[in-house]
Measured scan of single mutants.
Amino acid sequence: AQASVVANQLIPINTYLTLVMMRSEVVTPVGIPAEDIPRLVSMQVNRAVPLGTTLMPDMVKGYA
């Protein structure tokens, strides 16, 4: 199964992502692939992302 990117903490709206904020986990539904974690660093979330939430492409500015 493919691992997705999951929030490792509460990520406030407009926060620039860093490695410590994200982890990879096999979840349903599938979100942003874990292999894209390096690409996500320094990208901004466009909403608050609670701890344990799967990151979806529409949550990250400029990802989709």
Rank of each mutant, 00 (worst) to 15 (best):
A1S: 10
A1E: 15
A1T: 15
A1Y: 09
Q2F: 12
Q2Y: 11
Q2S: 11
Q2I: 09
Q2H: 09
A3L: 11
V5I: 12
V5D: 01
V5L: 04
V5G: 02
V5S: 04
V6F: 02
A7K: 00
A7L: 03
N8H: 11
N8Y: 05
N8E: 10
N8V: 10
Q9E: 12
Q9G: 06
L10R: 06
P12G: 11
I13A: 14
I13L: 14
N14S: 07
N14M: 13
T15P: 00
T15F: 06
Y16N: 10
Y16M: 15
L17R: 00
T18D: 12
T18L: 10
T18P: 00
L19G: 10
L19D: 08
V20H: 15
V20K: 12
M21G: 03
M21D: 12
M21H: 15
M21F: 09
M22D: 01
M22G: 00
M22R: 00
S24Y: 06
V27E: 02
T28N: 09
T28H: 06
T28K: 03
P29I: 13
V30G: 11
V30N: 09
V30A: 08
G31T: 02
G31I: 02
G31W: 02
P33T: 07
P33V: 08
P33Q: 04
P33H: 12
P33N: 14
A34K: 09
A34N: 06
A34Q: 12
E35V: 08
D36P: 00
I37F: 04
R39W: 06
R39P: 03
R39L: 12
L40Q: 00
V41E: 14
S42K: 12
Q44N: 07
Q44V: 11
V45S: 14
V45M: 08
V45I: 13
V45Q: 01
N46Y: 11
N46T: 14
N46R: 07
N46P: 04
R47D: 13
R47E: 13
P50G: 07
P50S: 12
P50Q: 09
L51Q: 15
L51K: 10
L51C: 03
L51R: 06
T53W: 15
T53C: 04
T54C: 03
T54M: 07
L55F: 13
L55D: 01
L55C: 02
M56T: 09
P57D: 09
D58A: 14
D58K: 05
M59R: 03
M59V: 11
M59D: 15
V60Y: 00
K61P: 15
K61M: 09
G62V: 04
Y63P: 08
Y63N: 07
A64K: 07
A64M: 08
A64L: 13
